[in-house]
């Protein structure tokens, strides 16, 4: 589609400059998209492994907890864990990566984890808490990496849309317009020459 622009030499020069800028931008965005894809693919492999590990550890923790739940009555189990002494704090930092701002969660665990007496509790409860406690930093790290992955995917999508808009819409439109202005200008030039030649003939005939 041609742009609605006056077919002047000035506009032609301006449009040619825009085409150059658009092509340069297109190349840069294409490079950015490729780099984002590269990082995304590397990260997705890590996340997959991490998620599998976390899910496996969580399954173990839930299984131990299930056994503790079966061996201890529900009231005794809940009494054992009703007064937790461990404080967990998550701090968030932001890291800039390829124009996205990704969060990095840092977990801090303070205080004793076993806040119950051993006489009325089962060793399966220790095992469950142990595994839950060990899996928590991994879970927080996974959350951080998965969020980065989400942001990266959004950015890839956005960049892909821009690259396509430049490649299939803006640059062809600009080029078409440049071409049509150039044609119009040469047409005008030819008309002017013809007009001059005609005037010259009229003058000569007199």
């Amino acid at each position: 589609m041609n742009l609605r622009i006056n077919p002047t030499r000035m506009e032609l020069l301006r449009l040619k400059k825009r085409v150059r800028v658009a092509k340069r931008g297109h190349k840069l965005l294409k490079d950015k998209r490729d780099e984002l894809m590269k990082r995304f693919m590397a990260l997705i492999r890590d996340v997959k492994n991490m998620r599998l590990t976390v899910e496996k550890r969580l399954m173990e923790a839930y299984r131990s907890f299930l056994v503790a739940r079966a061996v201890m009555s529900p009231e005794v189990l809940e009494e054992a864990i009703m007064f937790p002494t461990q404080q967990v704090e998550i701090s968030i930092k932001e890291v800039r990566m390829m124009s996205i701002i990704a969060p990095v969660f840092t977990l801090q665990q303070e205080g004793a984890m076993y806040s119950y007496g051993l006489a009325s509790s089962s060793s399966d409860l220790d095992a469950a808490l142990d595994t839950f406690s060990a899996v928590l930093p991994l879970l927080v790290e996974l959350a951080s990496v998965e969020r980065s992955l989400d942001l990266l995917a959004e950015e890839i999508e956005k960049t892909r849309r821009r690259v396509n808009a430049l490649e299939y819409v803006l640059i062809p439109n600009l080029e078409k317009t440049v071409k049509s202005i150039a044609m119009k200008l040469s047409e005008q030039e030819r008309a002017a020459i013809t007009r001059l030649m005609k005037i010259k003939d009229v003058v000569r005939a007199k």
């Binding site: 002494t85 004793a112 119950y116 007496g117 006489a119 009325s120």
Partner: peptide
């Protein structure tokens, strides 16, 4: 200041 001792004493 440790709830574990409540269990231990009462056990």
């Amino acid at each position: 200041q440790d709830p574990k001792v409540i269990d231990e004493v009462l056990d």
